[in-house]
Amino acid sequence: MSLQLNARLLTALETRGKAELALMVLPSLMIVALVIAPAIWLGVLSFSVDGAPSLAHYQRMIDNSSYAAIFLTTFQLAGLVTVITVVVGYPTTYAITLLPPRLSALALACVAIPFWTSLLVRTYAWMVILQRNGILNGWLLDAGLIERPLRMSNSFFGTTVGMVHIMLPFFIFPLYASMRSIDGNLTRAAHGLGATPTRAFLDVFLPLSKQGLIAGALLTFVLCLGFYVTPQLLGGGNVTTLSIKIQQNVIVYADWGAASALAVVLVVIVGLMLLASRLLGGRGAD
C-alpha cells in the first residue's frame, strides 16, 4: 500500500523535475538568440567577401603590415598595464589584509567607489589631469620641475595610466578574496618555526596567494586586450589597438567582414590563453 504510494510520489517528483527543466528552455533560447547566434553570424561574415566564401579578411591581416603593428600595440599595452597593475595592486591588497577589520573595509570601499563610477567619467577625468594645460602639467610647471608642458595625454603613456586605474579593482578584489582565505596561522607557524617575517612571507604567503595573483593578472590582461574607451580617448588617435581598428572597420569603412575577422582572432587568442592558464594552473594545483 505505502510502497505503491511511494512509487506514485517518486514518479510525480520525476515529472516535476522535467517540468522545471522545461522552464529553463526559454532563457536558454534567449541566450542563443541574443548572444550565440550573432557571434556565429560574425564568424561567418569574417570568412566571406560579398557573400562568397573567402579568406581575404585573414589574408589582409598577414599582408598589410599595419596590422602587425596593431597587434603589437595591443599586446604591449595589455602587458604593460597588467605588469603595473600587479606591481601596484599586490602590495596594496596585502596591506589591506593586514589592516584591522574596520580600516580594511574602508580601504576596500576606496577601491570600490571608482569602480562604480562611469568608465567614461573616469577617462575624461584623466584627460583633464594629463592634458597639455592640465592639472599635472600645471603643478610640475609651478614647482619648476619642467620648463614646458609634457605630452602625457594623447599617448601610450596616458593610455597606460588611465587603464591601470581602471583595471586595479578588477585585480584587487579577486586577489583580496584569495588572500583572506589564507589562514593567518600559517605565516605565524612559519615564523615560529624560525622564519624571519620576510622569509615567512616568501615561503608561505606568496605561494598561497599565487593562484589569486595569476587569476587576477589574467583577468586584467584579457580585459585590456579588448579595451576600447580609454585607448580611444586617452590615446587620442596615437594608440591604435585592435578594438579601435575593429571600430574603424565598422564605422569608417563599413567593412563588417574585416571587423569580424579581427574579433575572431581576438577571441581565439583569449581562448587559447585561458586554456593555457587552465592547463598550467591545473598542474600547479595538484
Binding site: D183, R188, A189, H191, G192, G194, P197, V204, P207
Partner: peptide
C-alpha cells in the same frame, strides 16, 4: 625576543600545516 629567535616548537590548534 621575536618568535623566530625563540626556538620553540608549536603545534597549532588547527595544525597550520603548509598546504602547498
Amino acid at each position: 625576543l621575536a618568535p623566530h629567535k625563540r626556538n620553540i616548537g608549536m603545534v597549532f590548534q588547527n595544525y597550520a600545516l603548509f598546504p602547498h
